[in-house]
Design a protein around this nucleic acid. Sequence first.
DNA 1: TTTATCCTAGTCGCGCGGTG
DNA 2: CACCGCGCGACTAGGATAAA
Length: 251
Amino acid sequence: MKLENSFILAPGIGEKTEQKLWKNNVTHWDKVSQANVIGSTRRETLEGFLKKARKNLQVGNSYFFGDKLPNKSLWRAYRNFEENACFFDIETTGLDKSRNKVTTIAFHRNGETRTLVRGQNLTRENIQREISNSSMLVTFNGKKFDQPFLEHSFDLNIDTPHLDLMYPCKRIGLSGGLKKIEKRIGIDRDLEDVDGREAVRLWKKYENKNDEDALDKLVEYNGYDARNLQELAEIVHQRLESRFYRPHIKR
DNA sequence: TTTATCCTAGTCGCGCGGTG
DNA sequence: CACCGCGCGACTAGGATAAA
């Protein structure tokens, strides 16, 4: 499903009203004019809003929808903005953003993975550019870890719509950490022996002993993390759709 | 095993739109 | 005009995660 199938982003429309619309075959913005399940006052308000929404969709303004959709439903914007969605993941020297440093960041967008490395190209400007070129950020637990860590470390203020897959995963019964979820739904991963802890060691090896192989391995691991997020997003979207949309529409 | 953070889900009360 | 259902903001409780 796409944004054009959603109505809860409009003021005065909640889940119940949206489901009523769907049930009556109003499954697209373009069908609102034929809607007879809501009164004319509501319909006119809705159509006025949809006019603005169409404009913002046309120019690809994801921020408009990020503001209107509750986080719980942000996944509905994924199909509309996946082209410039940025799947990203950071590696650090530890958990504490006030004590530890970012070592590498992998950005995966439009099928390409770009990695920033501390001491080479990991700069505020490069991060800023990656973020501002993105319609939407996609992470796992990034709302609590990756984004705040970046904001603190590089004095950034990130307001790009951010789809944190951890919460949708929980809704469809997937929890226990990213690696565990990947295994459960059959996402392959090389470098199975590497985890966050090992990532810290790899960085130390590189930094202290100039071990380029360690850095290569870290970058490769970081890239897998980012790319796997895209696979996960596909699966999560599919499952959310079949659970929270399809049951409400006529076939 | 901890820590801060942000989520979802649930409840409550107010106000409004729609209905008869 | 009286009632019901819904949206919605405010609030609370509880669950789950990051990397080491």
